[in-house]
Amino acid sequence: MSKRLKNILTPIIALLLGIIVGTIIMIVTGYNPLDAYAALWEGALGNPYYLGETIRQITPYILAGLAVAFAFRVGLFNIGVEGQFLVGWLASVWVGLAFHLPKFIHLPLAIISAMVAGALWAFIPGLLKARFRVHEVIVTIMMNYIALYVCNYVIQNVLTNGKERTGNVPDSASLASPWLQSLTQNSRLHWGIVIAIICCFIMWFLLEKTTRGFELRAVGFNQDAAHYAGMSVNKNIILSMVISGIFAGLAGAMEGLGTFGYIAMKSSFTGVGFNGIAVALLGGNTALGVFFAACLFGALEVGALNMPLAAGVPNELVDIIIALIVFFVAASYIIRVFLERISKKEAK
């Protein structure tokens, strides 16, 4: 069995195990698993509306997954994608509301502002890590809380007069597309998916093909050797956090300019950034892997909404199944050992 095949089989087996254990749980709790999975499938891909919603949900997951994966490839654990996502969302809406410009300037400007905001938010932990060796996990977790409350403050006190949500961004800063909506029976599908797919390509190209990517990966594998080879470890650490933050900020713009068109106060985190960790893990931290993993997560999330209606299965059960899949992916080491056993037997 080749290494590549193993890398592909591992998440698939994790998925299957999650489904099997989910089935057992449903049987034990008295729900019909066949009906439930049929409802899940139907709810994710069953008609154009559901398909549109699924793709819409996939979009921020791809970008959040890329953000986590990119930092990870350089040896950093960016837990702060959630915070970078929020400030990106805020920045995109802010710029969307503040200016009146032609679309071909306004939309790019709003998107770029989200990228800059995410980048800045990630730059701080990157700088602290590079300069003072402060662990990025701790700093990024703290930055998440700062982002959450700063956003709420700005929404209530700067963007509005004490309201809980902003108005909608004008058409000139919107990613929404009447054409895509009409294709999908008025789902909230928007142009963001194109940006997300381009970003997958950019991540792959940047890491695998460019001189900078060679340095970034080298730092991720062995900082001492990178230093010896004349690469600036600190510069690459900061850069990787900044690029990671750009992806995360873009994920925020998808919500701010696409799905919702506004930003509302939040009592807690959205979970997009944290799901990004699971997506990156499931996707093996590669661009293509992240793409497929995000598709899976998006489909599960959207399909799940149909389960209570069509099969009477509570939402929470779906969350449990998703959690199980993540669990089995995290435990992929066990699956890998198992696959190795099989391939050894084959060799005999």
Partner: peptide, 24 residues
Amino acid sequence: TPRKITESGVGHIPQDRHKHGLVL
């Protein structure tokens, strides 16, 4: 910096080949 020194004509076969010499 190590880069500048390398470019000034210094070659270095390091003592610890796994730590410094190679990205394994």
